[in-house]
């Protein structure tokens, strides 16, 4: 990595290699393409929304790895029932 790369805050080639590999390995290990992961997310949102109202803006769904195993991690905030009721009566 050259002096100028560092000066302009460019990522080192080793860092790009690592980040790219992280993504590739998740897809290789799970057989999930980024497009498939997106459609999985949409299905999840649809299924959960039938039961509770969720905050789709701040939710996070992604694949994380824990050693050699992958897990689907979802953090989905549920909108509070009180606020929902308050809004309806307004």
């Amino acid at each position: 990595m050259s002096f100028f790369d560092r000066l302009f805050g460019r990522k080192s080639s080793a860092d790009s290699a690592k980040e790219r590999l992280q993504l590739v390995l998740i897809h290789d290990r799970t057989d999930l393409t980024p497009a498939e992961l997106d459609s999985l997310k949409d299905d999840l949102i649809a299924a959960i929304s039938r039961h509770v109202e969720i905050d789709t803006q701040s939710m996070q769904i992604g694949v994380e790895h824990d050693g050699r195993s992958q897990r689907l991690v979802a953090d989905i905030p549920i909108k509070s029932a009180q606020r929902r009721r308050a809004r309806k009566t307004k």
């Binding site: 990595m1 080192s12 080639s13 080793a14 690592k18 992280q22 050693g67 050699r68």
Partner: peptide, 19 residues
Amino acid sequence: LVKKSDMLSADDVLDLLAV
């Protein structure tokens, strides 16, 4: 090369492969 951050380090590779 590792020192210049132009090659994955042994720790990077171990992190990725977890073996």
